[in-house]
Amino acid sequence: MEVRTIKVFTTVDNINLHTQVVDMSMTYGQQFGPTYLDGADVTKIKPHNSHEGKTFYVLPNDDTLRVEAFEYYHTTDPSFLGRYMSALNHTKKWKYPQVNGLTSIKWADNNCYLATALLTLQQIELKFNPPALQDAYYRARAGEAANFCALILAYCNKTVGELGDVRETMSYLFQHANLDSCKRVLNVVCKTCGQQQTTLKGVEAVMYMGTLSYEQFKKGVQIPCTCGKQATKYLVQQESPFVMMSAPPAQYELKHGTFTCASEYTGNYQCGHYKHITSKETLYCIDGALLTKSSEYKGPITDVFYKENSYTTTIK
């Protein structure tokens, strides 16, 4: 009895394709271990004539594949690729409408935090270190965002349907971005203890939790000093293409032309909904596939993004 075979390709990165001759009487799992086709788990399936010449994702289970996976995804987590594939199996079914010149995501599976993050990423200057993220990001900007969303979920250790947080998501993504040249110098002034300067680099240099107003941050924000008295913390120097200011959701007025974009969060910790506000020729609110415009805006804002380049204080 002759062994019926077909020729397929296996890959971990969709760049390096490895030619395989597979036995049609055995499952993919018996031949390769966990195997995925377009995100779908085909591990328990036997090869079919229609699979001839198709590319299958496999887990990096030998040295060659491990090197290829690390170079593309910059992670050695053995569960990463499987999590990416199972997320992709959902995100490829989502709709990605162009809204006001940006790629958004039609609401499904509690994905409003991903839509808000995706919209924000198209408006701030950011370059990702893992080629996987950078490639998928370019495709997302062009309207094909399924891979990018699935990668975000995998890097953030999230599953489809789980509630997510924009600030946490951005923080994970910033860790995989090139923020080497970003720098922030802060000064804390206390009447009792004097003053202390701190220099922050990388992710810490672009994120701040405690106030939404970048102007206020430049002037000074009140913080408790270690001595128990009130101290003032203010920005001395900022070198970065953008800054992200966050605070627990509270009524906040966004003035046209003073910011790049913002995240609105309605609801409580267990259950809520994100919308995205962007400042173009007027203010726009993007909620999944829905767009509304207004000249002014007041609502429960939790993150505001500002364009920056270089700032030095005039406070002496």
Results as ranks from 00 to 15, higher is better:
Asn111His: 05
Val21Trp: 11
Leu186Asn: 05
Leu283Cys: 09
Ile105Thr: 04
Phe242Leu: 02
Gln175Ala: 11
Leu81Cys: 09
Gly210Asn: 04
Thr19Lys: 13
Leu126Lys: 01
Gly228His: 01
Lys293Thr: 14
Cys261Gln: 01
Lys54Ile: 13
Pro241Gln: 10
Leu133Gly: 04
Tyr172Pro: 01
Lys201Met: 10
Asp23Trp: 13
Asn49Gly: 11
Ile223Gly: 14
Lys275Glu: 03
Pro300Asn: 14
Gly220Met: 00
Gln237Leu: 14
Asn309Lys: 12
Leu88His: 05
Tyr73Pro: 04
Asp180His: 10
Ala142Asp: 14
Cys261Ile: 05
Cys190Glu: 00
Phe174Asn: 01
Glu239Tyr: 09
Phe174Pro: 01
Val203Asp: 06
Tyr155Met: 01
Gly228Ile: 01
Cys112Asn: 04
Ala117Gly: 05
Thr198Pro: 01
Gly101Ser: 06
Cys149Ala: 09
Val160Tyr: 01
Thr198Ser: 12
Ala108Gln: 09
Phe9Tyr: 12
Lys218Gln: 06
Phe148Thr: 05
Gln230Ala: 13
Tyr28Cys: 07
Ala40Tyr: 14
Lys201Ser: 13
Thr278Pro: 00
Glu253Ala: 12
Ile301Phe: 00
Thr198Phe: 14
Leu118Cys: 02
Asp41Cys: 13
Asp77Ser: 10
Pro248Arg: 13
Gly267Asp: 13
Leu118Tyr: 06
Tyr297Thr: 01
Ala177Arg: 02
Gln134Leu: 06
Ser79Met: 15
Thr302Val: 09
Asn110Gly: 01
Gln20Trp: 08
Tyr269Arg: 15
Asn111Ala: 05
Leu121Glu: 02
Tyr269Pro: 15
Phe70Cys: 10
Tyr265Gly: 05
Met207Asn: 02
Glu264Thr: 07
Phe305Trp: 08
Glu281Tyr: 00
Thr76Pro: 14
Lys201Pro: 03
Thr43Met: 10
Gly33Trp: 03
Ile6Tyr: 09
Met24Ile: 13
Val22Glu: 03
His90Ala: 13
Thr192Lys: 12
Tyr311Leu: 10
Ser171Ala: 13
Leu200Glu: 08
Tyr28His: 05
Ala262Asn: 01
Ser295Gln: 15
Tyr311Met: 10
Leu118Pro: 04
Pro249Ser: 01
Ile315Trp: 15
Val8Phe: 06
Lys219Asn: 12
Ala145Thr: 03
Thr192Trp: 07
Leu65Cys: 07
Gln134Val: 09
Arg141Thr: 10
Thr10Met: 08
Thr278Leu: 09
Ser246Val: 03
Pro34Met: 10
Thr232Asn: 06
